[in-house]
C-alpha cells in the first residue's frame, strides 16, 4: 500500500510544513519504504501483546509544589531577546483571528 499524494499533503498541513508538488515523489518513496519496514511490528501476535503489562520502571505521578520555580521576571529579558519580533515585554506575532 502506497501513501497517496493527497495523504502526504494532508500530513504536511497537519504538521505545519510546506510541501511542494516537486517534493512529493521523494517523500512518497522514503515514507513507503519506512512504513513497510515498521509495519513488521504487526507480526507480533496480539495475544502476546495483550499479556504485556508495563513492568519496571513503574510509572507514577511526580508532584512539585504549586509555587513559582523562579523569581518573576528573572528570565524575561533573556527569553524575549530570542524572539524574532517583540513589542515591550510581549512577543509580537501576526493577527490570529
Amino acid at each position: 500500500m502506497s501513501i497517496t499524494p493527497d495523504e502526504l499533503k494532508n500530513l504536511a498541513a497537519l504538521a505545519r510544513l510546506p510541501l511542494s508538488d516537486e517534493e512529493i515523489p521523494a517523500f512518497q518513496k522514503d515514507m513507503d519504504a519506512i512504513l513497510a519496514y515498521v509495519a513488521e511490528i504487526n507480526a507480533v501476535s496480539s495475544s502476546d501483546s495483550e499479556d504485556a503489562v508495563v513492568s519496571v520502571p513503574e510509572h507514577h505521578n511526580v508532584w512539585r509544589d504549586d509555587a513559582d520555580a523562579n523569581e518573576s521576571g528573572h528570565y524575561t529579558e533573556a527569553l524575549l531577546a530570542n524572539a524574532p519580533a517583540r513589542e515591550g515585554d510581549y512577543v509580537k506575532v501576526k493577527k490570529i483571528l
Partner: peptide, 16 residues
C-alpha cells in the same frame, strides 16, 4: 492503533 499503540505494546514485551 496499528502503529503507535502496537509499538508501545511491543516496547513492553521488550522490557519483559
Amino acid at each position: 492503533d496499528a502503529y503507535y499503540g502496537k509499538a508501545n505494546k511491543v516496547r513492553d514485551l521488550l522490557k519483559q
